[in-house]
Write a protein that binds this DNA or RNA. Structure first.
Lengths: 137, 137
DNA sequence: ATGCGTGCAAACGATTTGCAGCCGG
DNA sequence: CCGGCTGCAAATCGTTTGCACGCAT
């Protein structure tokens, strides 16, 4: 008898997946797949770059990590505390990010969309700057 | 006697540049370099893809067009009416876009950044949806 | 005349995919 | 045992660059 098809199969517990999740966890900010891969190697965790990409993609699809794109199109990943909709204040130097919410933004997006008769609305909003630590350095 | 070095050389008036600017103009929405290239060919304008990329980049640098990135990292360009800071309400189907401003957003970004001691702040905010025309189709 | 602008082909860099072997459940 | 997970190498794909030639100034 087939397993319940409504619910996606849970990911398998592998050494690699654990390492990736952990590394992403204490990174505390946004980093690229390649950067994460380097951290893992540096820490002695032997993981293939392919696996890093595949795992991050999976985590993103599962909504367990947030994704954003650099100005030059590179994908950055971050393990977020809240699964609910939120925005970020990101340091463009170190990648560290603060999760922030913007009630105003939500309202603005909704109102603007309605005014122009757009439906199925969603939006993106991120703030970039230099954090105190990086400014000091 | 050398020309004034403080001011960048004005772009040359070439057939290709004109065609690109024109096509971008009546597109009325965001489109990728490749899409623009196809439109040009379809219209009978013989322009190299390379030139399209280079010209769009130049226009973007000059602040004459806005750039945003698709979820999968593709760059989209749009000729905007106002050179001043603004945001967009974009149709994810046809790319048509409305320029909107968000006083609330600016305030939110500034306030949030200050609260967390971030400096050199800037932000991005775009709204995506389906426009009335596309919904009907 | 002088070089910027153009275009073709090759180079690039991030990401994806084919496929054979491994290992967690 | 079995199928998902892994990883290497090769393939994609958008975009950039090297270089020789043409055209705008």
């Amino acid at each position: 008898m087939p397993r319940d098809l409504d619910r996606p199969a849970p990911p398998r517990a592998t050494r690699q997946r654990a390492a990736i999740a952990a590394a992403l966890g204490d990174a505390g900010g946004f980093l690229s797949a390649q950067a994460l891969h380097e951290r893992l190697r540096a820490a002695g965790d032997r993981v293939g770059l392919t696996t890093v990409y595949r795992t991050l993609q999976a985590l993103a699809d599962a909504g367990e990590v947030d994704v954003l794109r650099t100005a030059d199109g590179e994908a950055l990943y971050r393990q977020c505390a809240s699964a609910v909709h939120h925005h970020h204040l990101v340091c463009r130097r170190c990648g560290r990010a603060v999760e922030v919410e913007g009630p105003d933004i939500e309202a603005w997006a909704t109102a603007t969309a309605r005014r122009y008769r757009f439906t199925d609305v969603n939006h993106v909003a991120e703030i970039f700057g230099t954090c105190a630590a990086c400014r000091a350095a």
